[in-house]
Amino acid sequence: MIVFVRFNSSHGFPVEVDSDTSIFQLKEVVAKRQGVPADQLRVIFAGKELRNDWTVQNCDLDQQSIVHIVQRPWRKGQEMNATGGDDPRNAAGGCEREPQSLTRVDLSSSVLPGDSVGLAVILHTDSRKDSPPAGSPAGRSIYNSFYVYCKGPCQRVQPGKLRVQCSTCRQATLTLTQGPSCWDDVLIPNRMSGECQSPHCPGTSAEFFFKCGAHPTSDKETSVALHLIATNSRNITCITCTDVRSPVLVFQCNSRHVICLDCFHLYCVTRLNDRQFVHDPQLGYSLPCVAGCPNSLIKELHHFRILGEEQYNRYQQYGAEECVLQMGGVLCPRPGCGAGLLPEPDQRKVTCEGGNGLGCGFAFCRECKEAYHEGECSAVFEASGTTTQAYRVDERAAEQARWEAASKETIKKTTKPCPRCHVPVEKNGGCMHMKCPQPQCRLEWCWNCGCEWNRVCMGDHWFDV
Rank of each mutant, 00 (worst) to 15 (best):
L325N: 04
T231C: 09
N52I: 00
R156N: 14
L283Q: 09
I122Q: 15
T388K: 12
P343V: 10
S22H: 09
P345S: 13
V393S: 06
F208H: 01
H257M: 01
R170L: 08
F463I: 04
S22V: 03
P199W: 05
R348Q: 08
C150H: 00
L325D: 04
I259P: 00
Q317N: 14
E195M: 10
F381I: 07
Y149S: 02
V56L: 12
V3W: 02
N356L: 07
V70N: 02
E353K: 09
G429R: 12
D243T: 13
D219I: 07
V244I: 13
L287V: 12
L41P: 01
S136V: 12
M458F: 12
A390G: 10
S384Q: 08
N254K: 14
V278S: 09
E221L: 07
T387L: 12
H373A: 02
K349E: 08
P180N: 00
P37G: 06
T173H: 09
N81V: 14
N190Y: 08
L297Q: 05
Q25M: 07
A92K: 13
R396L: 11
S127I: 10
H200D: 14
E98A: 10
N235E: 09
W453C: 01
S127H: 11
K76T: 14
T204Y: 05
H373W: 02
S255D: 15
I298A: 01
Y372I: 07
C95W: 13
C365K: 03
T387N: 14
P437H: 11
K412E: 10
Q326H: 09
R42E: 06
S110P: 13
S181H: 09
G328V: 02
E49Y: 01
C95P: 15
W403F: 07
I239N: 01
T177M: 11
P73S: 06
S116Q: 09
A397Q: 09
E207D: 08
R420E: 11
I239R: 00
E309S: 13
L41R: 00
N254S: 11
D87C: 12
N52H: 03
P335F: 07
W453Q: 03
C260H: 01
V330A: 06
A225I: 08
R392P: 11
P202W: 07
H215Q: 02
I142Q: 14
P419Q: 04
G328T: 03
G336A: 07
Q64G: 13
W462A: 15
D53S: 09
H302Y: 10
C201T: 01
E376I: 11
E79Q: 10
E221W: 06
V15P: 00
S198K: 09
P424W: 04
S9Y: 04
D53H: 11
D87Y: 10
N190S: 11
R97K: 14
T231W: 06
L266T: 13
P202N: 13
E49I: 04
C169Q: 00
K299Q: 09
C289A: 00
S109H: 12
T386P: 10
A398K: 15
P335L: 06
G47N: 05
R402L: 05
M192Y: 03
F264S: 01
T415H: 12
A172I: 05
C365S: 03
K416F: 05
E404R: 08
R314W: 02
E426A: 12
R402G: 05
